[in-house]
Computed example of a mutant assay.
Amino acid sequence: MSARDAAPRVVVTGATGAVGRHVTRALARRGPVRSLVRDASKARRLELPGETVVGDYRDGPALKRALAGAEAVFVVTANPLRPQDDAQILDAARAAGVRKAVKLSWLAVADPSANDLIARWNRQSEQMLHTSGLAWTVLRMRTPMSNTLSWASSIREESVVRALDGNARTACVDPRDVAEAAVRALTEAGHEGVTYALTGPEPIGAREQTEILARVVGRPLAFEELTAEQALARWSARLPGAVAEALLEAAQRRRAGDSCEVGDDLGRLIGRPPGTFASWAADHAAAFS
């Protein structure tokens, strides 16, 4: 095999994340893929296929190694306090001769009333992509169903779910479906210059999710409503204060019904109806049991 043949067609950043891990696995079934990860041990636990480069987005040599020979890059950043991460990925991609970038973003960007830190960061990141000189596609996703994995320990140990605004609904989306859409955008023509809104098939709230998870684990689960102060304290215990405040602002918009809209972009992209929360929960029953 020549060096050219061995070069990866796609590089995946955020490859150990909820979406990135599925993108990496799907791409590996099509051809060479390379992942940029910060945590090599997590990549091994997930058994990510293909080549892995270990490094941070601030690590210029690691970015150069990861992007060498690639045609496209899946751009996933996670820290709104480091907006330069997107710029560094895109600059390195352009220098490496990458032609296409697919960016994972958030649907709150499209909400004119959303002006919290996370929404502003994603808007800025999208603008960087638009002006990068690369052929671009933006995937704006709604809350991933996998966020409910944060309840797993309390379900296993106490048979209880604690969450804010249990009746506030969101059209949460299966990250596997988002990954399938990303693979299409990365490997097919016709998605350049397009922004897609990716939602699940129905709006659902935390209380309803708890009822579904109770059926999955085969025992009753209690739901305990958190106050805004309790939720903020929980987020602040593991996140910077500004990020925790932004999550609370997003929750307040969700309470007002801003996350309920169901779109058809995802179904058109993947050629089938998006998966339901009940289906996702059944496939992840072991995590809660």
Rank of each mutant, 00 (worst) to 15 (best):
V23S: 05
L139T: 06
P144K: 00
E229A: 15
A119T: 13
L221V: 01
M1E: 06
A250Q: 15
D116L: 03
T137N: 02
A15E: 12
R120Q: 15
K103A: 07
S159L: 03
V160S: 13
E211S: 14
G50L: 12
A282L: 05
A282F: 02
R162L: 06
A78Q: 11
A66N: 04
M141K: 12
N147S: 10
G263L: 10
P274L: 02
P240V: 09
R44E: 15
G271K: 05
L36P: 05
L63A: 06
E224Q: 15
G193I: 11
N147Q: 09
E224D: 10
A214R: 02
W106M: 14
T195A: 12
R30Q: 12
L67G: 15
L129D: 07
V37S: 03
D39S: 00
F74V: 03
A92G: 07
R29E: 12
L129V: 11
Q124V: 04
G20L: 01
A250K: 08
P240F: 04
A281C: 11
S153H: 00
G14R: 05
R29C: 03
G20Q: 01
A68W: 10
R140S: 04
Y57H: 08
G69S: 09
L104D: 14
D165P: 02
V194C: 04
L46D: 09
A231I: 00
V262L: 00
R4Q: 13
Q209T: 02
K64W: 07
M141R: 11
V11A: 10
G55A: 01
L213C: 08
A250R: 13
R272F: 10
A222W: 06
Q124I: 00
S150K: 13
G200R: 11
R207N: 10
G14D: 04
I89K: 02
R123S: 04
G200K: 04
E229V: 11
L226W: 14
D165E: 11
D5G: 06
L232W: 10
S113R: 14
T143P: 12
P32Q: 02
C172R: 15
F288Q: 08
P201G: 01
L269Q: 14
L239I: 04
T187H: 04
A72V: 00
G97T: 12
H130R: 13
A43C: 03
S259P: 00
